[in-house]
Design a protein around this nucleic acid. Structure first.
Lengths: 138, 138
DNA sequence: GTATATATATGTAAAATGCACATAGAGTAT
DNA sequence: ATACTCTATGTGCATTTTACATATATATAC
């Protein structure tokens, strides 16, 4: 990735100028963990792989900072790799705690997919009916 | 909803204490708009309805602030309703701009779902394979 | 009258994200 | 040799989003 081909990552905006992009929060962490689950890797490479998940506009600062934070939390660990040509790389690998976290996250994701399905059904289909005065819950 | 049965809204945390919730950012706005699309409503009621979308732990402060902000942006509008018993309610209804915004958001949400599907397929199924040195893209 | 449910709101802090910039090794062209 | 580019990692600061604690007021039930 050459230094000037980075796309601007300013968020999409809807008709009213408000940000209208369904981006998950904390998405970056699970993406990194999933990547590291099978092959250890380093920041620069992870950045490129992240595009697979729609993270094309990934910003280096955020990625590197997140990696360091994740290491502090014990879900990844790193060592310097100086053997290959070019600048040294900090090679990251996932820890057992990291795997556990990823599993946990995946479960949470399942739940959220259901929630979004509900949203869509209501959006495209039958309207959301509120209780009337006489039939309040309990 | 009585004053003390509010659940703590601290986010779900994974094994390492890290937040593990696949909720998209700014989720609240489309949820409100979808609710208002069919029936005008007010904050307190919206809060209860929001639970339908997995917003059980919605916090009043955030909701009311968001509603005011949305009004400033012109995607909802409000009037005071004093006719009914109890404290006055600020009744909100969706504007045309709000409908447009909701449509816009829904499109973005579809993309988001695809991204999550991809994530899930990679998580459960075939591993994510990085290019090896000899076979770089292009 | 005082406790409770209803209803709206603000002030402040913390967390997440974005943007701009800084640094440096190694290879390639001039 | 030196300038340029690609690779690679990072920091500082601002903004946006979300969370937490708390304040206020009206009506009804006891």
């Amino acid at each position: 990735m050459s230094k000037d081909e980075r796309k601007p990552e300013s968020a999409l905006r809807g008709p009213e100028g408000r940000v209208a992009e369904a981006r998950p929060r904390n998405w970056l962490v699970p993406v990194i963990l999933l990547s590291l689950k099978d092959w250890s890797s380093y920041g620069y490479e992870l950045m490129e792989r992240a595009s697979t998940f729609g993270f094309e506009a990934m910003n280096p600062g955020t990625l590197y900072r997140t990696l360091r934070q994740m290491e502090k939390e014990g879900i990844v660990e790193s060592t310097w790799e100086t053997s290959k040509g070019g600048p040294a790389r900090r090679m990251y690998s996932i820890t057992d705690a990291g795997k556990a976290y990823l599993d946990f996250w995946a479960k949470s994701l399942e739940q959220y997919q259901q929630t979004m399905d509900t949203f869509f059904r209501l959006y495209t289909g039958q309207p959301l009916r509120p209780e009337k005065k006489g039939e309040e819950k309990k």
